[in-house]
Design a protein around this nucleic acid. Structure first.
Lengths: 350, 350
DNA sequence: ACAAAATTTTGGATCGATCCAAGAAATCAT
DNA sequence: ATGATTTCTTGGATCGATCCAAAATTTTGT
């Protein structure tokens, strides 16, 4: 017994009259110990209340923790991460991969100085956002397997991406195929603040052009428009914080003549549907709405929302499998899928 | 530089021409080292690509990991845990507490032999269910601070509980106060399988009496009924797996004359509302429904669901704070709150 | 019964740092 | 310049296990 009251492997060994190594073997390789001796050691362990090797010490030698770490987008804490339904789906995928190997999942809020990356006790890391590019090198140097998600970090680094340009293109194509010609787009506003409206003709202003991920999606919309001989420059764009559902009325006001709304976020799309119904605009017969990302609420909305399944779960699973598997870095690109529900229909006749 | 390519503190020390201790101090107590020397060490570290003390070794001495572990109900893996909205709320609360201390959150799927409990690298543990009672002793012996949630483990052990008897009593009181007299109860079926109906008079059968948590809630309903001079024995009970929303039709069929449904799960309550509307039964004017547990879907349902807020977030936060704070074991009992929305109204006149 | 082979057990070294008491160097007082 | 302080730096011990090669023991073959 020690001063701190906990007994160690060596205490057990002494009590059982064997060497440390033998005692160690009883716990980690029982077959190597003669049954008789093994029982003696086990009895001693029981008597001392010894619970098996201390995971910390074990770790020091073995180096394996049996856990994977996920570092959420920079500004998010643990709670925010869990609260965000889109990110939660991703986490779910990571969780699935963990379950396959019986590993644990660590959510690491990234404090200042990337303390999390440097000190987390994990076998590998998954970086969730662009802001983490600076942490890639530290992780590399720590020789920790890791993968990045949703951004390009070069061929040296395992990556899982979703082709969001294609995804939003599909969304727009779907509406165009239904016959829509008058649209409005709900885009992202990264900086905090109220929604902003960009009427047609103001698209080339730097605020619109300068966004990052959203830019991909905007290109996707533009692809579909030009395929159909339409010009995206004639479509009004509303930028809103993806979670600021109070922006829905602004969207509807900004494009009263639109028959279809393309939203880069699900939450906005759901909010627009709700607001439209509140105003007595029938969805989908008078107004069609397509979102981006498929979450539970989308299926349960009234009417259920047509949206893009951005493969969040698969993304998480693949990233985690990459980390677990080790091996040379791979680049995976997932293809988003259009999920057609009841928020889209041909435009009303005039 | 080592064979494995990673440099250690000692390599840095040698390169800088100082002792290990001094090098160590540069990273953990910079003020103790003369600026000139410190810079020399830092330069050496940079040159060798040394990233600071290895968290694993640090841990062996210090014992702190800056992470808290949550062990979900036995049969759930990591993914199931995140998928379950009720448990996810609890996790959210734990996450909030983590954010306050900048700690990480580890979700530990509990494999066979409680391997997780024994080997998880955390500063403390939270046990999420009755099945974990057997793991309490191991944790105690490991001298790990821990808390249990939702079940009584004796005065020696920190506990956060929610008074579910009171919660369900409130639910029933609410309906009774609105004037309802004919009810049906949706209870839990722990074993897998299809829903079962227990008409009045069969309440005392062992399947009904033998359930655990649900028993508390049933008592709560009974409390409210007897306050109003009603007898719960006259109320039909449907037992269904809490997630088996296919059971909703069975509920409505089992009690066609009921004007109000008391459900022990939110999901069932939401399913019942949906099914009722599908059948053309107006909610709440013809049928009132009260759930138990408040999740996002409940507020977004059509109509929004009246339900019991079982304080999931607070429960998680308190449990985590207990673990972080250490100190003598406390027993917290949270009081559930009735959240009145639009799924309840006075019964229809006949 | 004795050597050879197979199985068990053992002690020393190691994983990568931190702590602490003691030694060395620099600063100050007289 | 000498001793007394104060500030830095150092090596040895430690955290709690595992690994490995060598020693001890048991089993097998003839």
């Amino acid at each position: 017994m020690r001063k701190n009251g906990l007994s160690r492997l060596i205490d057990v060994a002494v009590a059982a009259g064997v060497s440390r190594s033998t005692a160690s073997n009883v716990f980690s390789a029982p077959d190597r110990v003669r049954p008789e001796l093994r029982e003696r050691v086990e009895a001693a362990a029981r008597a001392l209340g010894y619970l098996g090797p201390d995971p910390r010490a074990k770790l020091l030698r073995a180096g394996k923790v049996n856990a994977i770490g996920v570092i959420p987008p920079a500004e998010l804490g643990v709670a925010d991460t869990l609260r965000n339904p889109v990110f939660a789906k991703f986490l779910l995928g990571v969780g699935e991969a963990c379950d396959m190997r019986g590993a644990s999942l660590l959510v690491i809020p990234d404090g200042p100085a990337h303390h999390g990356t440097r000190s987390a006790l994990v076998d590998g890391l998954i970086f969730g956002r662009i802001e983490h590019l600076g942490m890639v090198r530290p992780a590399q140097l720590r020789r920790l397997p890791f993968a990045v998600v949703d951004f390009d970090a070069g061929p040296e680094i395992g990556t899982v991406k979703v082709d969001s340009r294609l995804g939003s293109c599909e969304a727009a194509r779907h509406l165009i195929a239904l016959g829509h010609r008058r649209f409005a787009i709900v885009s992202f506003l990264r900086s905090a603040g109220p929604a902003r409206v960009y009427p047609p003709s103001r698209h080339r202003s730097p605020e619109v052009a300068g966004m990052f991920i959203d830019q991909e999606k905007l290109r996707g919309y533009a692809d579909a428009f030009s395929e159909a001989g339409l010009d995206i420059a004639e479509v009004p764009i509303v930028q809103a914080n993806p979670w600021d559902i109070a922006a829905a009325p602004i969207v509807l006001d900004a494009a009263p003549e639109a028959t279809a709304i393309l939203s880069m976020s699900v939450m906005q799309a759901l909010a627009v549907v709700k607001e439209a119904r509140r105003r007595g605009i029938a969805v989908p017969s008078q107004l069609s709405v397509v979102g981006y990302n498929d979450i539970a609420e989308a299926a349960q909305s009234e009417p259920p929302l047509t949206t893009i399944d951005a493969r969040g779960v698969d993304k998480g699973r693949l990233a985690a499998e990459m980390v677990f598997a080790g091996g040379p870095p791979r680049q995976e690109i997932l293809v988003p899928r259009l999920v057609i529900r009841q928020s889209t229909a041909p435009p009303p006749r005039r």
